[in-house]
Write a protein that binds this DNA or RNA. Structure first.
Lengths: 368, 368
DNA sequence: GAATTATACCGAATCGTTTCAATAAAACAA
DNA sequence: TTGTTTTATTGAAACGATTCGGTATAATTC
């Protein structure tokens, strides 16, 4: 007779003959209890403490038997929660993002959250559209990976408009209202020059990052601080800025060009400190083309320790950003903010600055 | 007086003083029409053809004025659609994934779909958990990026259990029921050896992929076919397999070790064809350590053209997989399958095999 | 001028949950 | 015994949209 009833039902909703999803009421009928009871048991709600084990068991068996999966839309509609966070990044092609993403994913997984991914392609319009989409989907929180972010102050405004828990990775916003996780750029750069200095290098060339990037300033500040501390002479002719631009690979090409010019002007240097690993790759290529041996004739140090850096021959000495940890840290901040918001406590913004770590590999060597 | 009413309302729902989301009923009240009318207008439903422009305008103005965003949960609850697809990959750390992800994202964006990202870390349990989570969220479709996928036949079963539109990238399932997008591994490998051959190389070493990977077989088949076609002699002593393993970077290390052994056994070769770019990187390092100049003394060719390959010095000659195109292709298949499912047509599985492209760079050179 | 049709809008039901107030029986206290 | 508390379960009201069947006008046709 079961088959019979099913048939009838099938007939009634002729318009959609797809497998009719099993609802909580099906479980209720099957187990002989009311839908509300089923809900209470299955969610282990407070009221469940009054429900005797026997009942619980029967309901659970029925649910499993029917292959019941609660409809998440209905669930979210009531509870206003969906265990989803939005992750907006600015260029997934950037290897820097990858490891952070890994860190984010790992932590999110532990909390049973799932990320919705959006790649802004470094375009303001795309960012806004995605932000809009995320808000419409009512993600519970937002993670923004803003390393190569040229779009400036207004993005901030956009972000805060949402009034949704948010953490930014790789940059600190001017208004401190939004939590952030950054790396200690200044300290990292300080350690990098210090390393070169300790190897005997005194004539050091610098390829600084684009002016528009806050990390450029911070890293240069680290260099200057070291110079002051040790009376190292910084030759302004040997310090060049990468142009502001949006394309990642263009950065490598720019570094290549800049290094060639640096070589051409006959200002000699025994070491080169690049803004980041990508920049270092470009420089490496220029030096190779000029027939200058790394590290024998010129040392090179990068920043970030992106994935390919250790693969290079010679492998790149660099300053590592703890990217997985940064991702994890951002998630922990976000989850905390989310539960604060859920309980109507208003958590204050948190700003974490993680230490960078010098990774000595093959591209740096003592000056002969 | 507006402020007054707001105040009162705020008071009533004291329990949640957060910004009360504006609902369709608010728009209805504000515009003076019924909620149903508002819905019809805002969605431009069929019935909207009877609604005079003046009314439409008033409703739209009210909606905009209040900053109305439809609640997506309520919407999905009725329509059973949520414009979300799940993307499961097996190691986001793999640069191979990155570009495919970019391709996926681009296409999805155009269709106003958003991806939920899951990284299985090459673990079966994680994959299953994520699959479960995706199904519970009722994603409309599933994209599986299965390049480095060791988990075999059973995953297939899992996937088909879901009865949800699915496309697999990077591997074809034995049962043809699930759509797939792959690259022409055999043709690519053929082109790669052909390139080496045309440069005069006759003693070629091969580092083949792990036996468990289907692409390993296909690529080797391409090599064999070329060998038959041209009577090139393949020395079995010069063909080694990478061990089956799960860790990506371990692959590089294995390649390094294997290359060293290859060199040690004094079987001379003038070119080396690596299973993929990562393998080539490992080999490159081994050759450098042995003091063998690339490409002057030994040519190297990889496969994939992952992101760092063109950055290397010397830059890597390789066979490019059209990764963005593969992502895009998978999305188009998936979207089609989704709308087929929505209209209850049963689309058949599609299998696309995209051509690989030889990219000649600096690591290959004519034999002296 | 009556009958028909097109136009403009609305009320109520529905999607599948959760939650809260209500109830009834059982256990306990006086 | 009566009254109170605890235990066990439920019906109904949300949550915020969509949609279908209706109704009330206005315009058209005969």
């Amino acid at each position: 007779m079961h088959g019979h009833r099913l048939e009838k039902r099938e007939q009634m909703k002729r318009q959609s003959p797809r497998k009719a999803a099993v609802t909580i009421r099906d479980v209720a009928r099957e187990s002989g209890f009311a839908a509300s009871t089923v809900s209470i048991v299955l969610n282990n709600a407070p009221l469940a403490r009054y429900i005797p084990p026997a009942t619980k068991a029967r309901i659970q068996k029925a649910a499993k038997g029917l292959g019941y999966h609660p409809n998440i839309f209905a669930k979210s509609l009531r509870s206003k929660r969906n265990h989803t966070v939005g992750v907006i990044l600015f260029d997934i092609t950037d290897p820097y993002c990858t490891l952070i993403l890994r860190g984010i994913e790992k932590s999110l997984y532990q909390e049973s959250y799932l990320p919705i991914l959006a790649d802004a392609h470094n375009e303001r319009a795309r960012f806004e559209k995605y932000l809009e989409m995320m808000l419409e989907r009512r993600v519970e929180g937002l993670l923004v990976l803003a390393n190569w972010l040229y779009l400036d102050i207004n993005v901030l405004a956009d972000l805060e408009r949402g009034k949704i828990p948010t953490a930014i990775i790789g940059r600190e916003l001017e208004s401190n209202a939004t939590s952030s996780v950054t790396v200690d750029d200044e300290g990292g750069a300080y350690a990098a020059v210090a390393h070169l200095y300790s190897l005997g290098h005194r004539k050091i060339a610098f390829i600084r990052g684009p002016k528009a990037l806050s990390s450029s300033k911070a890293r240069w500040k680290g260099v200057q601080r070291f110079a002051r501390d040790t009376r190292l002479d910084l030759d302004p002719k040997l310090a060049v800025d990468l142009p502001d631009q949006v394309n990642l690979n263009a950065g490598v090409d720019d570094a290549f060009r800049i290094t060639e010019e640096l070589l051409k002007q006959k200002k000699s240097f025994t070491a080169l400190m690049a803004y980041d690993d990508m920049t270092a790759f470009g420089a490496l290529r220029a030096l190779a083309k000029a027939g200058i041996k790394v590290p024998q004739e010129c040392s090179i140090i990068g920043f970030d320790d992106v994935n390919p850096s250790h693969l290079f021959v010679p492998s790149l000495t660099t300053v590592r950003q703890p990217m997985e940890a940064m991702g994890a840290s951002a998630v922990s901040i976000l989850i905390e903010a989310i539960s604060a918001a859920a309980e109507n406590r208003s958590g204050t913004a948190i700003h974490r600055k993680l230490p960078a770590e010098l990774v000595i590999r093959e591209t740096t060597q003592a000056v002969p």
